[in-house]
Amino acid sequence: MGRMCEGRVVAVTGAGRGLGRAHALAFAAEGAKVVVNDLGVGLDGTLGSADSPARQVVDEIRAAGGEAVAHGGDVATGAGAASLVAAALQTYGRLDTLVNNAGFLRDRMLVNLDEDDWDAVVRVHLKGHFLPLKHASAHWRAEAKAGRRPVARVVNTSSGAGLLGSLGQGNYSAAKAGILGLTLVAAAELGRYGVQVNAIAPAARTRMTERTFAETMTAPDGGGFDAMAPENVSPLVVWLGSAGSAGVTGRVFEAEGGRITVMEGWRAGPTVDRGARWAPEEVGAAAVKLLGEAGAAGAVYGT
């Protein structure tokens, strides 16, 4: 039986540790050639040691018989994002899948959140998704216009914080919610060029969540499976990044342990239309009635 991603070239951002590393290894195990991007920063985005985590992952892949190349550029810059795509094309002659995963945290309650902490987190998560997507899509559009329609895939990384919000993470929650909007727009715009774009909202133990998910969880049947291992999320990412996911685009999947959920997002709920402008004193009663007919809002994480 052939491997799912045999011959495909996959670029994974933030792939030196945690989820990104797990994704890179999983793609390689399925036959992909992997461009392993990681800037090597600390949890808060400050520069770490000179020992490149991207290079370590490349070494792991090669030791297992796979093909990979390290990329240390900052994908939240135009030059870094462009060089990521160039690295795939120059090394392997093509790019088939982009997994946007890079990110870090600077958690504060809103009243204590500095402007620099807001800008840094929004930059790496949201801009760090937009720029690689932009440069990869420009390549795929050119291929499609040249008569070489790609079978291209993009997997973006959001979060439960982007779906519901999370106390102390206003910057992170806003960025992750923005990634969901970006995913929907990209899926609608790029389908004509053979590009599918989806997002995941993973729950796993990484540097960013190790305090939240410190304990090993077991399977419902009593098995000894670690439900918070990042490797649990990667099979879904590999499938979304493969040709086998044909027809799936503009969707958001929540993944945790052995559970996969299709998230349905904002949909129109109870509605009233009087056919004319409302008076302020009338709106309250109408809104309260509609809220009584609506489902309960999801709780913000941490409340």
Rank of each mutant, 00 (worst) to 15 (best):
V197A: 09
G73K: 06
K145T: 13
A297D: 06
V122Q: 14
L126H: 03
M1W: 05
V69A: 11
T212R: 13
A32N: 04
G302Y: 07
D107K: 13
W266H: 12
S49G: 06
A64E: 10
V75C: 05
F130T: 09
V288H: 12
A204T: 11
K127Q: 05
T249G: 13
M109P: 02
A11W: 03
V9Q: 12
G222R: 14
V237Q: 11
T216K: 15
G165T: 05
R141V: 03
R277H: 11
A152N: 08
G18N: 09
G65M: 10
L126N: 05
R211V: 14
H139F: 01
T46M: 10
V238C: 11
N198S: 02
G258V: 13
R62T: 15
V41P: 01
T218I: 03
T271N: 12
A54L: 06
W239Q: 08
R3S: 00
R274K: 14
G42D: 11
T97R: 13
G7R: 05
V9T: 15
R205L: 09
A79V: 04
R55P: 04
G16K: 11
V35F: 03
R274P: 02
M263D: 13
S52N: 08
A175R: 04
F213P: 04
W118Q: 06
A64K: 13
A214F: 11
H71L: 09
D114H: 14
S49M: 03
V99N: 12
K145L: 15
N100Y: 01
V69T: 09
G2Y: 09
A229N: 12
L133W: 03
V57A: 09
T212V: 13
G65L: 08
L110E: 14
V69C: 07
R94H: 05
N37T: 05
S137L: 03
G7M: 00
R211K: 15
D114R: 15
N232E: 03
W140P: 00
D226V: 00
G298H: 15
A64H: 08
G128W: 00
P202S: 13
T77G: 01
E282P: 01
V288P: 06
A79R: 09
I200H: 03
K134W: 00
G18R: 10
A87W: 02
A138G: 07
D116M: 09
A102C: 10
F225C: 08
A276K: 15
V12G: 09
P150H: 07
A286T: 12
T206M: 09
R62F: 06
T212L: 15
W239C: 07
A138R: 10
